[in-house]
């Protein structure tokens, strides 16, 4: 949404069937009022997006310590299980099944 290079004619851009279309709005006082309204709407949209982002961040922050604590417990238990299987003579085949390691003789 913009004024043309002379600053007299106000245009709006919008998407129609996936292509940008430039639309003439007008000139003079009416165009200026419309431009102010468009600007106010843009600011409101930006504020809404910022609020949305903050809400999401605070939600992520709320669950982050819990998820982190669980991840620690999860990883530690996985580590111990893997070590126990390794020391019992098993090897994991290609991140899949555990098989007993072949021994010669």
């Amino acid at each position: 949404m913009a004024w043309d290079s002379s600053g007299r004619y106000y245009y709006r851009s919008r998407w129609v069937s996936g292509r940008p279309v430039r639309e003439y709005v007008g000139t003079g006082l009416l165009a200026r009022l419309q431009a102010d309204l468009d600007e106010a709407e843009r600011q409101q949209q930006a504020e809404r997006r910022a609020q949305e982002r903050d809400r999401l961040h605070s939600e992520e922050a709320r669950y982050q310590p819990l998820d982190h604590q669980l991840q620690e417990v999860f990883s530690a238990a996985e580590l111990i299980a893997r070590l126990a299987l390794l020391t019992a003579g098993y090897r994991q085949h290609d991140r899949g099944h555990w098989r007993r390691k072949r021994t010669n003789g």
């Binding site: 604590q69 530690a76 238990a77």
Partner: peptide, 8 residues
């Protein structure tokens, strides 16, 4: 490890 699980 048990303590950690308990806390979680």
């Amino acid at each position: 490890l048990g303590e950690r699980s308990g806390m979680a």
